[in-house]
């Protein structure tokens, strides 16, 4: 995306600051661009953190108290974008959801068809066992723990698949890959909610 010229000296630049007069620019509403990174799904979280600290210092509103009102405003906006962006980008699931949104996918409502029937059976059985455990039937504990492990393993498996698809998209930028990612994220959300629910019930009934 072509950046408009610097608001202060009207020269071309790239990045957050003008290369000619060093004025802070109006931040582009995109987490990757605040971090000065390409839109990639695989990302080194440690490098991201280092970049986050570095930019946090550079963009901190305290550094702009003697600058123009416009730059003070930009530093606030950029800092807030940076913080939000760090929270989203460091988490693989949120990062993928963000990229899907930016690439024009609607990630809200999903039909029921994305849940395979055999998974539904398992989910149903797990819920039955959870209900028994909630009602104080300690015999259900074994079944619940078994189910928790099974679902946690499923989630790990999905995470591995996601990692591969992330790399695939970074290399080829094919929409079909994003479609697959979207399907996996749905399944993951479903399973993740279950694991969380099981853990809650297991703690409460201890």
């Amino acid at each position: 995306m072509e950046q408009p010229p610097c608001w202060q000296c009207n020269k071309k630049y790239t990045g957050l600051f003008c290369a000619h007069c060093n004025a802070l620019q109006c931040p582009v509403d995109d987490y990757y661009s605040v971090f000065g990174m390409e839109r990639k799904l695989s990302l080194d979280v440690q490098a991201l953190q280092a970049k986050f600290y570095e930019l946090s210092r550079l963009l901190h509103p305290d550094r702009f108290t003697r600058r123009s009102p416009l730059e003070r405003q930009y530093s606030l906006e950029a800092s807030s974008l940076l913080n939000k962006g760090y929270r989203v980008l460091r988490n693989p699931v949120q990062r993928a959801e963000y990229v899907l949104k930016k690439e024009g996918f609607d990630i809200g409502e999903q039909g029921t068809k994305d849940v395979p029937p055999e998974l539904l059976e398992e989910v149903f059985e797990l819920n039955m066992a959870l209900e028994e455990l909630k009602m104080g039937d300690q015999q259900a504990r074994g079944a619940v723990e078994e189910a928790r492990q099974r679902f946690a393993a499923m989630r790990d498996e999905i995470d591995r698949e996601l990692e591969q698809l992330f790399q695939q998209w970074d290399e080829k930028h094919e929409r079909a890959t994003l479609q697959q990612i979207r399907g996996l994220l749905n399944r993951r959300r479903y399973i993740h909610n279950l694991v969380t629910e099981v853990e809650n019930v297991a703690t409460l009934s201890n």
């Binding site: 029921t112 849940v115 539904l120 989910v123 819920n127 629910e197």
Partner: peptide, 13 residues
């Protein structure tokens, strides 16, 4: 019939 909604985790038999 067994159906479910991934977005809210509901399951219905």
């Amino acid at each position: 019939g067994m159906v479910g909604a991934p977005e809210c985790g509901d399951v219905m038999k």
